Amino acid sequence: MLVLLAFIIVFHITSAALLFIATIDNAWWVGEGFFTDIWRVCRNNSNCTEINDSLDDYTTIQAVQASMILSTILCCIALFIFVLQLFRLKQGERFVLTSIIQLLSCLCVMIAASIYTNQYEEIHKDKKFYEDITQGKYGYSFILAWIAFAFTLISGIMYLILRKRK
Rank of each mutant, 00 (worst) to 15 (best):
M1Y: 01
L2I: 03
V3M: 00
L4K: 06
L5Q: 09
V10E: 00
F11V: 08
S15N: 09
F20I: 03
I21Y: 03
A22T: 13
D25T: 06
D25M: 08
N26W: 03
A27I: 00
W29M: 05
V30M: 04
G31E: 04
F34H: 06
R40D: 07
R40Q: 15
R40L: 08
C42P: 01
R43V: 04
N47T: 07
D53W: 09
S54H: 10
Y58W: 02
T60M: 01
I61T: 00
V64N: 04
Q65C: 07
M68T: 15
L70S: 14
I73V: 15
A78P: 05
F80N: 08
V83H: 07
Q85N: 12
F87M: 13
R88S: 15
K90L: 01
Q91G: 03
Q91K: 12
G92I: 05
E93D: 05
E93I: 02
L97M: 14
T98V: 13
T98I: 10
Q102Y: 06
Q102P: 00
Q102M: 15
S105L: 13
C106N: 12
C108I: 13
M110E: 03
M110V: 11
M110Y: 07
I111W: 00
A113E: 10
T117R: 14
T117G: 14
N118S: 12
N118D: 07
Q119C: 07
Q119V: 04
Q119N: 08
Q119D: 13
E122C: 10
I123W: 06
K125Y: 08
K125F: 07
K127Q: 10
K128W: 02
Y130T: 05
D132N: 14
T134L: 09
Y138E: 08
Y140K: 05
I143V: 15
A145D: 08
I147H: 01
A150V: 15
A150R: 02
F151C: 10
L153P: 06
L153E: 09
L153H: 07
L153F: 15
I154Q: 00
S155K: 11
G156N: 12
G156E: 14
G156D: 14
Y159R: 05
Y159K: 09
L160A: 12
I161G: 07
